[in-house]
C-alpha cells in the first residue's frame, strides 16, 4: 500500500488554502473517516475518489457543515468552519448526488429562495438566477414547477441553486450520476468555467474519466484515510506504475488494493 506523503508546501500553512482539513474523524459503527488530512488550493479543481464506503461523502458532508465531526478541524478560506459555521457556509455551496429541490416551486422561485437564505439582494438574485438558468439551458422551464422535471433537469436546478449566491468553494458529491451525455457535458462546462473564474471545486465521482480530464489534482480515499494524492502523473508514480499512459482506473485499482493493474 502506498503511504501518502504530505506535500509540505500545502500541509504547513492553511491560510493560503481554500480548504484545509486536519485530523478529521467520524465514527458510526466503525470509523467512516479516520484522521483525514486534506488541503485544497484556491482556484483548484479537486476530485476525491475512493471505493464505496470509503468515507468520501461523509468527509464532504462534514466540510459542508451537514454533519459534525467527532474530531479534527475544517478551515474554509481561513475560516474555522466548526467554530464559525455560518461564516463558512456563506462562501460555500453543496450539491448532492440526489438533488433535493422543492417540487412545488418553479426554478426561478427555488433560486430566489436559495439566494434569500444566503442573504443575496433580491434584484441581484433574480439577475443571477436568470443568467444561470439560461446557462444551464433551463430558461424555457423557468416558470414551470419542478415536480415534472427529469433527474437531469433537477440536478441542473440544484447546481444553479449552488451557484446563485456566487460561492468561493463548491462541494459536489457525485454530481454527474444519472445525467445524460448532454446534461453531463453542460454541468462539467459550468464547473470548469467557475474554476476559471476563480472558484474552488471539490467533487467526488465514480466516473474516473471525469476526474482524469477535469481535476487538477486527485485524492484517493480508502477506509476513511487519504492514501494518495496528486496529479495523474504523480498518482501513477505513487502507484508504482512505470508506464506513462496507465489509465487512472488502473492506478486507482492499484492504490485501493482492488486488483493488479491491467496490462
Amino acid at each position: 500500500m502506498i503511504v501518502r506523503e504530505m506535500d509540505s508546501s500545502l500541509g504547513g500553512s492553511d491560510t493560503g488554502s481554500a480548504l484545509a482539513v486536519r485530523g478529521l474523524r467520524k465514527v458510526f459503527q466503525r470509523p467512516a473517516v479516520d484522521g483525514l488530512d486534506l488541503t485544497i488550493r484556491r482556484g483548484e479543481f479537486y476530485a476525491l475518489l475512493g471505493p464505496n464506503g470509503a468515507g468520501k461523502t461523509t468527509t464532504l458532508r462534514m466540510v459542508a457543515g451537514l454533519m459534525k465531526p467527532d474530531a479534527g478541524s475544517v478551515s474554509i478560506f481561513g475560516i474555522d468552519a466548526l467554530a464559525r459555521p455560518n461564516a463558512a457556509k456563506q462562501i460555500t455551496a453543496w450539491v448532492s448526488d440526489e438533488p433535493m429541490i422543492y417540487d412545488k416551486l418553479t426554478p426561478l422561485e427555488y433560486l430566489a429562495f436559495v439566494a434569500g437564505l444566503w442573504g443575496i439582494d433580491p434584484k441581484l438574485a433574480e439577475t443571477n438566477a436568470r443568467d444561470l438558468l439560461r446557462w444551464l439551458e433551463l430558461a424555457p422551464n423557468a416558470d414551470e414547477r419542478c415536480e415534472g422535471f427529469s433527474k437531469g433537469m433537477r440536478q441542473k436546478v440544484a447546481l444553479a441553486g449552488a451557484l446563485v449566491h456566487d460561492p468561493r468553494l463548491i462541494i459536489l458529491d457525485e454530481p454527474l450520476t444519472g445525467l445524460d451525455a448532454r446534461a453531463a457535458r453542460l454541468v462539467k462546462d459550468v464547473l470548469l468555467e467557475k474554476v476559471r473564474q476563480g472558484c474552488t471545486v471539490i467533487m467526488t465521482t465514480h466516473i474516473l474519466e471525469v476526474a482524469e480530464r477535469m481535476a487538477e489534482r486527485i485524492g484517493v480515499i480508502s477506509r476513511g484515510k487519504l492514501i494518495a494524492e496528486g496529479t495523474l502523473d504523480e498518482l501513477r508514480s505513487q502507484a508504482g506504475s512505470q508506464v506513462g499512459d496507465t489509465s487512472l482506473e488502473d492506478v486507482f485499482l492499484t492504490l485501493v488494493g482492488g486488483e493488479e493493474p491491467l496490462p
Partner: peptide, 24 residues
C-alpha cells in the same frame, strides 16, 4: 409523467411575493 410541465407560480407566487423576503 405529464405532471407539472404546465404549472407555474400561480397566485401563491404573487400572493407570497415571489420570495423577496428580507430575512432567512
Amino acid at each position: 409523467l405529464a405532471l407539472g410541465r404546465s404549472s407555474g407560480a400561480g397566485f401563491t407566487g404573487l400572493f407570497l411575493g415571489r420570495f423577496r423576503a428580507r430575512s432567512g
